[in-house]
């Protein structure tokens, strides 16, 4: 796919986040500080404005711009984390005008590494990584099995959803939810949820 299509998908992520804003905020109210949806929606609104004026065929540029805009508008922990994820992906796609499934998987790989480093976090701490890592693993495996791009993405979405369910069963040890200790059990992680929302959107966009 070319830059124009990537832009459409980035804008679709924003619409999805706007739709899910209240639900994400509600989730965050229970175990965090109740602003995840609000902050992400503000960030993606700014992304929409930025991308509207950006004329480029460089996909790296699109992703970097998205990342930098999120960093400078979202705040909280999600700003640096999602911002870093998109910036890492953007660095990987630097100068490229075409993006295929393998590129997408490499981008997600870079994004996961970026989030781990920025958040000093690993899988199993009730964070977005608990959706990101299983999704990435499932997609890599599906790719090896030779599945089509929409099918690969669907495997990723399924794994991410399972990851979100898994976050309900564990104690948060990172982020504001960690202050709750055992009281965080039973609640799904807002970051894992917003990641899954975004992956679902990508999947829907590329599925004919």
């Amino acid at each position: 796919m070319k830059a124009e299509r990537v832009t459409e998908i980035l804008l679709a992520l924003g619409s999805k986040i706007e739709e899910e804003k209240d639900f994400l905020t509600e989730l965050d109210n229970v175990i965090g500080d109740g602003d995840h949806g609000i902050n992400m929606a503000r960030g993606f609104k700014a992304v929409e404005e930025k991308l509207g004026t950006l004329q480029t065929s460089d996909i790296g540029n699109l992703l970097k711009t998205t990342g930098m805009t999120l960093v400078s508008t979202v705040g909280g922990a999600s700003g640096p984390l999602y911002g870093t994820a998109f910036m890492k992906a953007g660095m990987l796609m630097n100068g490229k005008e075409e993006m295929n499934l393998d590129d997408f998987l490499s981008c997600l790989d870079a994004a996961v590494e970026g989030v781990k480093t920025r958040g000093k976090s690993v899988q199993g701490e009730k964070t977005m990584l608990d959706a990101m890592i299983p999704a990435l693993d499932a997609m890599k495996q599906a790719r090896e099995e030779g599945l089509s791009a929409p099918d690969v993405l669907q495997k990723g979405v399924d794994a991410a959803r399972t990851g979100v369910e898994y976050t309900k069963t564990i104690i948060a040890t990172k982020g504001r939810a960690s202050y709750l200790g055992e009281r965080s059990i039973g609640h799904q992680d807002p970051g894992a949820t917003s990641f899954t929302d975004m992956l679902e959107t990508v999947c829907a966009c590329i599925t004919p």
Partner: peptide
Amino acid sequence: AGAVFTSPTPDQ
């Protein structure tokens, strides 16, 4: 000063 109850951003 960030948004209410939200950390300010790095550029600020």
